[in-house]
Amino acid sequence: MDYLDGVIVLLVVLGLVGIGIYAIMVSRNLIKIIIGMQVMVKGVLLAFVLAGRVSGNMGLGQSLALTVIVVDTIVAVVALALAVRVRRRFGTLDPRALTTLRR
């Protein structure tokens, strides 16, 4: 891997994170928001593998990425459970319907 490849992977990382944030900002559906969160996580996973490669300790990079996969899958499961609950109670997944507390 040369310098240019590292830069490209870093740009892909930033791109994935950016696309995820964009989705979270504009989505009108809770599940879409969770998908956005997952896209961000993909970017971060790639960042950890890249970090392992650059610092020459691939084992550590992979180990960290593995931990991130486990943890963020748990968060995704909890978020989906919450979304299911919201759909049952509010009858919609649109976050704009969640305004009972706003004033």
Binding site: V13, V17, G20, M37, M40, V41, G43, V44, A47, F48, L50, A51, V54, S55, G61, L64, V68, D72, V75
Partner: peptide, 13 residues
Amino acid sequence: SVLILLAIALTYT
């Protein structure tokens, strides 16, 4: 927390 992870990855890199 994902942004923190990104920062950790950057720091480690």
